[in-house]
């Protein structure tokens, strides 16, 4: 029997292809949320008063704090890519850690925000919602929980990617010559930020 050749894996690393791959993935994410935004705008168009009423229930302050938080974390992870290219590995790691901590703070805020809604008896399919709210308000809160929930899930995924990136930086798998993992981690995090930039005014600001 023919002996299997030992295949030397050539280094196929290519920064540009990695970036394109990430962008293609981001496009699918944009269209996923884009679909939800279309659903939101149609329901809003059909139920303007109910959306107005329900929107007043949301806490502007928490929404604004979370926006500020997310924007700052976007900056820190963007700075991390600069730090890596300047050869400051420790600074790069520290900046990703900071972004991670800020992402966690976002989730803590979300926890309290949802907690208040739950304590008021508002959650998808809750008795109070079905008994007291109009069709339009139920739609609003349904979309609110689905869209902010899906966004929070993306925050969690982004944080997991950050952990792998921190590990990669620490053990030297992510370096000046191979920065794609950090870059793509950053791109993903900015995507999460980008989605929030639209979620925030649509749910918290427009009454």
């Amino acid at each position: 029997m023919e002996h299997a050749h030992h295949v030397e894996h050539p280094d196929m690393y290519d920064e540009e292809s990695s970036k394109i791959g990430m962008w293609l993935f981001i496009f699918t994410e944009l269209l996923l949320f884009g679909g939800l935004f279309i659903v939101y705008s149609i329901y809003r168009y059909l139920n303007p008063e109910a959306f107005h009423l329900a929107g007043e229930e949301l806490n502007r302050t928490i929404g604004t704090i979370n926006t500020v938080i997310l924007l700052i974390s976007s900056m820190t992870i963007a700075m991390s890519t600069t730090a890596l290219r300047k050869g400051h590995k420790k600074v790069a790691i520290a900046l990703v850690v900071v972004s991670f901590v800020i992402g966690f703070a976002f989730l803590v805020n979300k926890y309290f925000e949802w907690g208040v809604k739950f304590s008021h008896g508002i959650w998808p399919g809750s008795e109070q919602m079905l008994a007291e709210m109009s069709q339009g308000e139920i739609l609003f809160f349904g979309l609110y929980f689905v869209m902010t929930g899906l966004h929070a899930l993306h925050i969690i995924i982004g944080m997991i990617i950050m952990l792998f990136t921190i590990r990669g930086l620490a053990i030297g798998k992510v370096t000046i010559k191979r920065p794609s993992m950090l870059d793509n981690c950053g791109l993903y995090w900015h995507l999460v930020d980008l989605i929030w930039i639209f979620l925030f005014p649509l749910f918290y600001l427009i009454h």
Partner: peptide, 23 residues
């Protein structure tokens, strides 16, 4: 105009994020 105003601000912000943060 509230909706329009809020969306214009969101579009400008997303443009900045895409252009600079997302490189």
């Amino acid at each position: 105009y509230t909706v329009a105003a809020a969306l214009i601000f969101a579009v400008i912000k997303s443009f900045l994020v895409l252009t600079y943060f997302m490189h």
